[in-house]
């Protein structure tokens, strides 16, 4: 593999990590507060659709991102109400949201297609080349020639670290996820903390989805997240619930995605030819990110979930 191909691979890794990172770092907040969020997938998918629709109709991709965030927060509000206020099971509610969003986005997009006879292509973001830094050999082109959302996603990582470990908010979040009753006895508003982190996580996941539709592409495709919400969820577990770990896990999955695209494009063809393989079905490399997820979770060993994860809290219950 020559240098250009390597740079291309690493650049794509950063690019493909971005949607995962938004969803995972956002989801980390509610996970640390004790709300398990496997509805990241549904929120990403909704964000992808809403981001695309608003960018398409307004002509401004930034408006698309904002609208996506709002839509993600809205669905998160529903999820929060059902689970935190009504005490419904977090897993089952999230599965319902995922299924609902898959159907809802598909129907809306088809209606939109039927109503617009022309091309459905939204305006997209331009790459920001960071002056100076982008000139550094190898690192420059890999790290500093990206869409603005990419920088934003990676900035969320130190932000999350700072909030978790250096602020009173972060201390409250961590305490609520480990021992909500203890937090409650000290005047921490358990429900408020959980609501806010769920809303924030929903907004971030939806932005992650918008990255797919108006960042990497300029249109929406049915089920375009293709399980990335679940991969983001796995990144949180694999990253052991820390911002840095979650980022590294996201990068691993992003790398697997970038690699599979290149395998599809034929970088391994000489190797296959030497092995006497005529043709590799494209479905095989496409599996790669999912296989990596499985293998990663297999090797993570014993993981320490926040002690109150997925457990409903009610002050007057025991």
């Amino acid at each position: 593999m020559d240098m250009d191909a390597l740079i291309g691979l690493l650049h794509a890794t950063i690019r493909l990590t971005t949607p995962l990172l938004f969803a995972a770092i956002g989801g980390l907040y509610n996970e640390r507060a004790g709300v398990i969020n496997i509805a990241l997938e549904g929120k990403m998918l909704l964000g992808a659709l809403v981001g695309f629709m608003v960018a398409f109709s307004s002509g401004n991709p930034w408006l698309g991102v904002l609208a996506a965030a709002a839509s993600g927060a809205l669905v998160a509000l529903l999820f929060a109400y059902v689970t935190i206020t009504l005490g419904a099971d977090q897993i089952v509610s999230a599965v319902a949201i995922n299924l609902m969003m898959l159907g809802f986005t598909g129907v809306v997009f088809r209606l939109m297609k039927a109503a617009n006879s022309g091309s459905l292509s939204a305006p997209t973001f331009q790459e920001w080349t960071i002056p100076g830094l982008a000139q550094i050999p190898v690192l420059g082109p890999v790290l500093f020639r990206h869409l603005p959302l990419v920088y934003l996603a990676f900035l969320l990582v130190p932000l999350a670290h700072f909030i978790f470990y250096r602020t009173t908010w972060g201390l409250s979040i961590r305490a609520v996820g480990e021992h909500p009753r203890a937090a409650d006895t000290l005047g921490v508003k358990v429900r408020t903390v959980r609501y806010l982190t769920v809303l924030w996580g929903g907004a971030m996941a939806a932005i992650g989805g918008a990255v797919l539709s108006i960042g990497h592409n300029s249109t929406f495709i049915e089920n375009m997240t293709a399980g990335r919400g679940f991969i983001a969820f796995s990144a949180i577990v694999f990253g052991k619930w820390t911002p840095l770990g979650t980022m590294l896990a996201s990068l691993l999955f992003g790398f697997a995605d970038a690699l599979q695209l290149r395998i599809q494009a034929g970088i391994l063809e000489p190797l296959f030819r030497n092995l006497g393989i005529q043709e590799v079905a494209y479905q095989i490399p496409v599996m790669l990110p999912y296989v990596v997820t499985l293998v990663a979770l297999f090797f993570i060993g014993k993981s320490h979930w926040p002690a109150a994860a997925a457990i409903h809290y009610d002050r007057e219950e025991g």
Binding site: T167, T168, L171, S172, R174, A175, H179, A183, T185, V188
Partner: peptide
Amino acid sequence: MLVPPLTVTENVILGLPGARGIL
């Protein structure tokens, strides 16, 4: 009512407004 992974100091100040705002 203690949160086991947190330190003594963190447990003590949990829920209190900080002298330096949210820091």
